[in-house]
Design a protein around this nucleic acid. Structure first.
Lengths: 228, 228
DNA sequence: GCGCTGTGTGACGGTTTTGTTACATCATGA
DNA sequence: TCATGATGTAACAAAACCGTCACACAGCGC
C-alpha cells in the first residue's frame, strides 16, 4: 500500500507541484487547501504524514498542527512544515507546536523526499523488535538473524519474512492467499503455488536442527507453524 | 577512558553531591567553584560535557556559557545548565547563550544521568571517546586511528566514521538510508548506492587481517557489523 | 489397487540486488 | 595554482533471489 501524505497548502501551484513530486516517488497525495478541508481529509484518510504550509491564511498552520497533536487518533502522525526562508521565529513556534521537521522554501524535490523518508523512518513502531525463540529456533529482527542453537541459518529475504510471520502467529493455519497477503503484501500478482516453493526453501533452511517439522502442512487448508 | 564532566557550581554540598552521582555512574568529575576556576579546568581537562550552575555569584553562568561556545576549542562541548524552579526567563536566556539542555532543581540522580546521556547521544563523537576493540580490530576515536594487531590501517574520513558507527552499533542491521542518516548526516542528499561504494572501500581497508568479514551484507535490508 | 487431487521438489530463465571499477568533481593544503 | 586525496555517481559484472513449471509423490475416497 502506498504511503498517504496529506498536503495542506493554500497556493495551488505549490500544492500541485508537491503532489507531482510525491506521486512520482510512489506516495499517495491528498490535497487540502485550507484548515477545515485539512481536518476533514485528515479524519477521512488518516494519512501517514502531513506536509503543512506554515503560512496558511490567518496563520492557521500552527492551529492545525496543535489540532493534530492533541487528538488521540492523530497525535502520532508526523508533521513536516513548509516555511519561507528566514522565518526563524516561525520555525521555533512550529517545532513547539509539534512539527517533526521543517523545510525551507524553496527546496528541491530530492530534499523533500529525503526529509519525508527520514521522518517516516523515525516514526514507525519498535513493536517488531523483539526476538522470538520457539523450540530453540531463535529469530532476531534487529540483527536480522536466525539461529538454531549455536549456528547461524541463512535465509533469503522472503524466507525470513515468512518465518517471522509464522513465529509471530503460531498455532494457526494460514491459507496460501493469506500468506501472500501478509508476507508478500496485498495486491501482488503471484501464483498460490509460489508459497509452496518458499515453504520448501524455508523448511530446508531451518532443517539442520530439525526445525522444519515446525512448519506443518494442513492438507486442503494451508500451512501452520506449531511447536506442539 | 571515562567521560569527563566539568561541574561548575559554587555551593559545595551540591557540587559534591553531583560528583558523587556522576562517579557512581562511571563518569569522571572535575569540580570548579567559580567562573575563573571553571575556565582553567576547562582548558586543562577539555571535558566532554559541562554541568553549569546558572546562579553563579554575579550571574556569571551565562558568561561562562558564552565563553565556551565562542572558543574554537570548546564550542562543541555541550552544556547542561542547572536552574532553580521557576527561573523561566533564565532558561530562555540560557538556551540562547548556547546551553544544550537544562535541569530544574531539585532533580533526581536518575534524571540527571538520563539528561546527560541524552545530550551526549546528540553530540556526535562525545560518548565515543573510548577505544573499541572487536576481534582484534581496534579503533581509537581520540587518535583517529584504526589498527589490526600491529598494523596501522589507513582509511578515509567517511570510512572511519562508518567503521566507528558500525563498531559502536554492532549486531544490528542498518539500511542504506539509515547509514546515510547516521554517518553522513540527516540533511545530506546522496544516492543509496553511495553507501555500497564506501562499504567496499571500508572492507578493502580493513581486509589485511580478514576483518572485512565483520561487515556483512543482509540482502534486501542493508549491512550489519558482527563479530559472530 | 485406481484415479483424483493436493503437495513436494528440483531446475530454469529472468529479474533484482549487490560488488566492483572507472571517472568526473570537489576540497584541501602546499 | 597545482597536486593530492576524497567523494559521489554511473556503468558493468557477478551473485542472489524470485516465480513458475514439470513431474514425482502422498493422501484419500472408491
Amino acid at each position: 500500500m502506498a504511503t498517504r501524505i496529506l498536503v495542506v497548502e493554500d497556493e495551488r501551484p505549490i500544492r500541485e507541484m508537491l503532489t507531482f513530486v510525491l506521486v512520482q516517488h510512489g506516495f499517495e497525495s491528498i490535497e487540502a487547501e485550507d484548515f477545515n478541508t485539512g481536518l476533514d481529509k485528515l479524519a477521512e484518510y488518516s494519512p501517514t504524514l502531513v506536509l503543512l504550509d506554515w503560512m496558511l491564511p490567518g496563520g492557521s498552520g500552527i492551529q492545525f498542527a496543535r489540532k493534530i497533536k492533541q487528538d488521540e487518533f492523530s497525535k502520532d502522525i508526523p508533521i513536516i512544515m513548509l516555511t519561507a526562508r528566514g522565518e526563524e521565529s516561525d520555525k521555533v513556534r512550529g517545532l513547539e507546536a509539534g512539527a517533526d521537521d521543517y523545510i525551507t522554501k524553496p527546496f528541491s524535490p530530492k530534499e523533500l523526499i529525503a526529509r519525508i523518508k527520514a521522518v517516516l523512518r523515525r516514526v514507525p513502531g519498535a513493536h517488531l523488535e523483539e526476538e522470538i525463540i520457539i523450540n530453540g529456533l531463535r529469530l532476531d529482527p534487529v540483527s536480522h538473524r536466525v539461529t538454531a542453537y549455536q549456528d547461524d541459518l541463512s535465509l533469503g529475504p522472503t524466507e525470513f519474512k515468512l518465518l517471522q510471520f509464522f513465529m509471530t502467529h503460531p498455532e494457526r493455519v494460514y491459507s496460501r492467499e493469506q500468506l501472500l497477503d501478509f508476507v508478500w503484501g496485498t495486491n501482488v500478482y503471484v501464483e498460490d503455488r509460489t508459497v509452496d516453493v518458499h515453504i520448501r526453501r524455508l523448511r530446508k533452511a531451518i532443517a539442520p536442527h530439525g526445525h522444519d517439522a515446525l512448519i506443518q502442512t494442513v492438507r486442503g487448508s494451508g500451512y501452520r507453524f506449531s511447536a506442539k
